[in-house]
Each structure stands twice: as structure tokens, then as C-alpha cells.
């Protein structure tokens, strides 16, 4: 019962704020809506008993990525809003139509996959020697997924170097 109420409340918030992100005229309003969306998704993770991911979501998304966006929005101080520029070759209606087709396609996939959901996939969860969400996730990351985990850190290092090079003054 509590999960039902939480799910519907958070769903309405997430979808409404996501629509605001996409439709807002002012980019700063868009960023603020984005923060709220991320916080609601973090709350949804708590409902799903993924506490570690909820904390990561708040720290990395709401704390890190969105601050990055805010900095860029403040630095890129456009006197002329990009939406005023009209390109006669641009086909926004076609884009909207394609997005609608995409929604129908995804809905079709969802309906199809749940119409024949007799064989529920029960992946064998290996016996974990630890208890608790964070401990189990950490165990998984440092045993079975150690190499992808280290590669992710290399990826972040490369991205950091690349971002610094790109943001240099003389580029």
C-alpha cells in the first residue's frame, strides 16, 4: 500500500518535471527541473530497496553533473536565444512524429513482453557472503566485475583529461 502511493506520487513528479525539463523556455529553469527529477528518481530507488544507488544518484547526478550543467548555462550567456533562430530546413513536426512513433514502439515492446510473461527469468543469485545492499553491491563490483570497474575509472580519467584539454583557452 505504501509502495503503491509512493510509486504513483513519484511517477507523476518524475514525468511532470521531465516534461518541464524539455519544454522550459529558460535554460536555468530546465536545469532546476532536472535536479528535482534526479532527486525523485533517487527516492524511487529507495522504494526499490536500492539504497546505495539512491545515494550515488544524489551525489553524482544531483551534486556533480547538474552543477556542471549550471556552470555551462551561466558561462554560455546567450543574448540571442537559440529558439529564435528559424532554420527553414528544420522539421520539428517530423521530429515530434518520430518521437511519437518511438513511444508507440516502446509501448508495443512492453505490451508484447508482458503478454507472454509466463517464463519468469529467475537468474541464480550467487550466495553472497555479506548482507545489506551496499555490501552486496560492493562485493559484486570487487569480485565478478573488477575489470569493468577498473575500466570505468580509466574512462573517467580519460574524460577528465579530455574535458580539461577542451576547456583550455587557446583551443
Amino acid at each position: 500500500m505504501a509502495e503503491t502511493i509512493a510509486f504513483y506520487t513519484l511517477s507523476v513528479l518524475i514525468l511532470g518535471l521531465a516534461v518541464l525539463v524539455v519544454t522550459a523556455k529558460n535554460t536555468v529553469h530546465s536545469v532546476v527541473s532536472l535536479v528535482m527529477t534526479f532527486l525523485c528518481v533517487a527516492a524511487l530507488y529507495v522504494v526499490l530497496e536500492a539504497e546505495f544507488l539512491a545515494v550515488i544518484q544524489i551525489l553524482v547526478y544531483a551534486g556533480g553533473i547538474v552543477v556542471l550543467y549550471l556552470f555551462v548555462v551561466m558561462l554560455v550567456n546567450v543574448g540571442r536565444p537559440p529558439e529564435e533562430h528559424r532554420d527553414p530546413r528544420r522539421l520539428s513536426v517530423l521530429g515530434l512524429g518520430l518521437a511519437g512513433a518511438m513511444l508507440l514502439e516502446v509501448a508495443g515492446i512492453v505490451a508484447y513482453s508482458y503478454s507472454r510473461s509466463t517464463s519468469s527469468v529467475t537468474a541464480p543469485a550467487g550466495p553472497s557472503p555479506v548482507q545489506g545492499n551496499t555490501e552486496e553491491l560492493g562485493w559484486l563490483l570487487y569480485t565478478d566485475y573488477l575489470i569493468p570497474f577498473e575500466l570505468a575509472s580509466v574512462l573517467l580519467l580519460v574524460a577528465m583529461v579530455g574535458a580539461i584539454v577542451l576547456a583550455r583557452r587557446d583551443l
Partner: peptide, 23 residues
């Protein structure tokens, strides 16, 4: 699926590249 579609709409319809990144 609904959230993903909103993101797709944002990418295909908006012209501001920052908003496209947020989508």
C-alpha cells in the same frame, strides 16, 4: 518507457544543445 520517450522528444524537437544533453 514514458520517461525515455520524453527524452527522445527533447532530443528531436529542441534546438538548444544544452537542453538536448539534459534530455
Amino acid at each position: 518507457a514514458a520517461l525515455f520517450s520524453i527524452g527522445v522528444i527533447g532530443v528531436l524537437v529542441r534546438r538548444n544543445i544544452i537542453i538536448i544533453f539534459m534530455a
